[in-house]
Design a protein around this nucleic acid. Structure first.
Lengths: 331, 331
DNA sequence: TTGTACGCGTTATCAG
DNA sequence: CTGATAACGCGTACAA
């Protein structure tokens, strides 16, 4: 591959001049023309490692989350990717973390400087993670609930409010025996959704029964299916909120196979409003947590901070929205 | 951030020794111990740009495809990501290409050397793309149909065979009036599926009617819905093959809303066997093109070539598999 | 086994 | 406006 020196020689100028025209500094018209010609002739591309070494910028942004199988994170990735595609920054994806240890290891490698910033949406709550993030010598934007003692750019969605909306909606459609198919309590969304559910139930004047929250092992459709299959007596319920659309889809599948009518016997509301919500049968009422929009905002925050490193951390809040479909139609 | 010199000073050795222990070269035990201690104390991480510049390797692999909204590519990404996560390589994602021009621009930037290899699954067929790929000074593995004049590592799935299996299956279940909801003919999958469909219909002894292939504008559920809505007379058909599961899901939605029974009136088979196939109602028979597996294989091919740059290009073929579900149950 | 010194390709400073 | 040259941080001959 041709380097800057070869271009300089070809154009009959110095490497400094080549560098200048590449980076848009002033140059005489004919100098620039000769350099551009040489660049074209040699098919020259500036070496990104050399550039990164010199300017201390990789032009890469790292997006990290835990589950590449979860459509909500895919949507977030889409948002980040779209926002970044118009810039000089490349997207590097770090995912499929199955344990806190893996995240810790990943976070440690960030010190190598291969990325200029980190957009992270951690599902696990762990002090080590918090500590490593705050020790990172680079901009971080955190998508999700900000842990204690961390003060970085943050995009936040009040999923609790979303769950409250879901509860209210269910009550309005005549349901009072509401259950929660929750995700694992080892995750932040798991604990938050449980707490939000209890609070929303009480706020609505219903009495909260511990037995109404059913824990799934994962956020997958299979887990939702299994959770429903473990319910001994469906007559105790007339509605379920599921911790995400995948769980909801699995639950609906079990219902369909076992003669449980939705929304006739049981109403279902999902969370995330992923693409599948409108494709299921019946279509799924779901709390839109706007993952794609959050991804876009996260990327914007990152770009903004990269351009303006000293501003105070910002928090941007996204409003959840209940998208009502057939699965909660009035009885 | 500490650099290698700081570590050397702290450990009372030379930079060369530090470099050696980092890269696993021989060193006396106590030297190594002191270096490791210094590394830990200073929280040292080797700078990846400097390393990349020196060894001419970025330790990054770029994955490029056209549509981040398509679950099949997501699955592929999952496969690549999983395979790479055990290695030193990072995954960089280039996606959301809406035009050939964008791909061309992207391919040109590959010359900057920010990636050691490119895994690409191009949906568009364009000579410029082919030319740029073959001019790339780096390993390429192509996922999909290899264009004329390109000889790189390739992972291939015979989607035509998959379509033939679908046709046969439909016939076995008593259908003879089979249509195709196809994706855009501006894409490679679009043209291939159309040709495969025609061939399979004829091979099965049915007569091929041009009107039986209906073109959708995109590979999205909305396009599938719209395609079905444009069908004037459903009595001409007793089955449809859809160019992917998303189109199938959209079509099924239209059917459900318009009193068309599946599989009673119309059988449906999708392609890709994405997660949603088993969650739809009825569950969707689908041709599994094994996107995730292809992603894994692509990554393996890449790693293998990186370790062994001079071997001849390999082609690995994956067998499609028809996964039979309710949407094609016997009449 | 260890240390010195050079070069990887760029950008930026500074003198002309 | 241009050219020579010193870094950037690392790996590795080569010499000791």
């Amino acid at each position: 591959m041709a380097n800057i020196e070869a271009v300089a020689k070809q154009a009959g100028v110095s490497v400094a001049s080549v560098s200048r025209v590449i980076n848009g500094a002033a140059a005489r018209a004919d100098t620039e023309a000769r350099v551009r010609k040489a660049i074209a002739e040699l098919d020259y591309q500036p070496n990104s490692a050399a550039r990164a070494l010199k300017v201390r910028q990789s032009e890469q942004i790292c997006l990290s989350f835990d589950d590449l199988a979860n459509p909500a994170y895919i949507a977030m990735t889409r948002g980040v990717g779209r926002e970044l595609s118009a810039t000089k920054y490349r997207l590097i994806l770090s995912s499929a973390f199955s344990s806190v240890e893996e995240i810790v290891k990943h976070l440690q490698t960030m010190g190598r400087g291969f990325a200029d910033g980190l957009i992270i949406s951690p599902i696990y709550s762990d002090e080590r993670i918090t500590k490593l993030i705050s020790a990172l010598h680079m901009p971080v934007v955190l998508v999700g609930t900000q842990p204690e003692g961390l003060d970085v750019d943050n995009v936040y969605v009040d999923s609790s409010a979303g769950i409250a909306m879901a509860v209210e909606h269910l009550i309005q459609t005549g349901r009072t025996k509401i259950g929660l198919i929750n995700g694992p309590l080892s995750t932040k969304p798991g604990v938050r959704r449980k707490a939000a559910f209890e609070k929303a139930i009480k706020a609505a004047g219903l009495k909260f029964d511990k037995a109404s929250v059913i824990q799934a092992n994962t956020f997958s459709p299979e887990a939702g299916y299994f959770a429903f299959s473990e319910i001994a007596d469906f007559s105790k319920f007339d509605a379920f909120i599921c911790a995400n659309d995948q769980l909801a889809a699995g639950a609906m599948k079990f219902a369909s196979e076992n003669g449980i009518s939705i929304p006739g016997d049981i109403a279902i509301v999902g969370i995330d409003n992923t693409d599948m919500a409108s494709l299921l049968h019946p279509t799924l009422t779901s709390v839109d947590l706007k993952a794609e929009e959050r991804g876009e905002i996260a990327a914007q925050l990152m770009l903004d901070r990269l351009a303006n490193p000293d501003r105070a951390p910002k928090r941007i809040t996204v409003e959840p929205k209940l998208v009502i479909r057939e699965s909660t139609a009035k009885k």
